[in-house]
Amino acid sequence: MAPSRDRRPGFSRRAQYGLFVTYILGIAGAVVGAVLLALSTFNPAAFSVAQAAVAEATTPVATAGGAVVRTIATVPEAIGTWWRVHGENAELRERLARARGALLVGRQARLENVRLRALLRVRDQRQDTVTVARIVSTSASSTRRYGLLNAGSWQGVTDGQPVSGPEGLIGRVLYAGPNTARVLLVTDAESVVPVRRSRDGRPALAAGRGDGLIDIRTIDTADGHFRPGDIFVTSGTGGIFVPGVPVARVLRAGTESAPARPFARPDVLDFAIVHRAFMPPPPPAPVPSPTPAPTPTPEP
């Protein structure tokens, strides 16, 4: 059955109320417009007051609406800014990581350069240098304190020669092989080095303790008071170690002995210098050949 062409709202009360309200609003709008038109024509002052009142009433609503519109308009820009800042932050973090790596490499190179320059300066100042060798390993975890050099008798190294670094004395050669040498470190319990106090020349002995430190022991009891910070250098007594090489610095006060820390630490050194002995032992005296017995002359 075809739908009815009658579109009148009589069949629906809701439609009737909607149509009625529409008519009322239209008529009210027409009346208000006519009143405002007449008021603006015949009484402009009153129309200005009414216009101002309407403006005062609608301004907060317009301001709030404008703020909402501006906020909504800035959302795409804020999202774009966040993505851009996020990307720039990631790029800056990557650059910082690369710069940190380069900075560490530069610091390591600077420290290495300082050590090598100090080693070169020591070698240039000392004319008794035998060779410069690399410290291959040290026995830091053992009860004995040894170091191993990659130079031996083929490079002129012999038993008993002193070994030092840029900071001070390391030890002495205990055994020299063809291309390696074992060094007895000053921290070994069997190591004893004659030293003197730098501030007054008081003689003493620097004996290793086997734990990375050195005991400074008195030779006489005239002035055996050790102070923290006292520096002891080699004295040259015994003819092995050249005088004036730094050995250790006292850590705590003591009377007959005091603990000290060595200046040279083989576990952090790369290179060491092997020197000739300060006063090498004289060569052995030649053995005189036996005098041949006189040959008797035959009688005529």
Rank of each mutant, 00 (worst) to 15 (best):
D270L: 03
L119S: 10
F271H: 06
F20T: 15
W83N: 09
A264D: 02
L36D: 01
A15W: 10
T143F: 14
Q155P: 02
A52R: 01
Q108A: 11
A97T: 08
G26M: 06
P246V: 02
V186M: 13
Q127R: 13
F226A: 09
A133V: 13
R145P: 10
R144G: 07
D230Q: 08
V136Q: 09
V21F: 12
T295A: 11
A62Y: 03
R7P: 08
A53E: 07
P228Y: 06
D188S: 10
E167C: 01
V233R: 02
G152D: 13
G208Q: 04
L96E: 03
V31D: 00
F20W: 14
L37V: 00
R117W: 03
Y175V: 15
A52L: 07
P280Y: 04
R196P: 02
G212A: 11
R134G: 14
G106T: 09
A99D: 07
A34Q: 10
R100M: 06
G33S: 14
G106L: 12
A45Y: 09
F241M: 13
R8A: 15
V242Q: 10
D211C: 11
G229D: 07
R14D: 11
L120I: 11
V21D: 06
P194H: 12
V245G: 01
Q155H: 05
P292S: 12
L96D: 06
P294S: 04
V268N: 00
R227D: 12
T22I: 15
I231C: 00
L119V: 08
T71S: 08
R117V: 13
A258Y: 02
R144D: 11
R121G: 06
P283R: 08
R117T: 11
Q51E: 03
T59H: 04
D270G: 01
V173A: 01
P9T: 14
R110A: 12
F271R: 08
E299Y: 01
A64L: 11
R7C: 08
G147T: 09
S40A: 10
L185I: 08
F42Q: 10
N150Q: 10
G147M: 14
F263L: 00
R14V: 15
F271E: 01
P284G: 06
Y23V: 12
T74Y: 07
N179D: 15
W154L: 15
S142W: 14
D211A: 01
P166R: 00
R249V: 15
P292A: 14
A293N: 02
A50M: 09
V69W: 13
P203A: 07
I24A: 07
W154Q: 12
S137M: 09
E190I: 01
S141Y: 06
L92K: 01
L116I: 08
P296V: 14
A45S: 13
V49M: 00
D230L: 04
R172V: 09
A78S: 00
A46N: 05
I170E: 08
A181R: 10
L19S: 13
Y146K: 11
S139V: 06
P286H: 05
R249M: 15
F241E: 13
Q51H: 05
T221G: 00
E94L: 03
G212T: 02
V105T: 10
V163M: 07
P259L: 02
V136E: 12
M1G: 14
S12V: 10
P288Y: 07
G168Y: 08
E112S: 11
S164T: 13
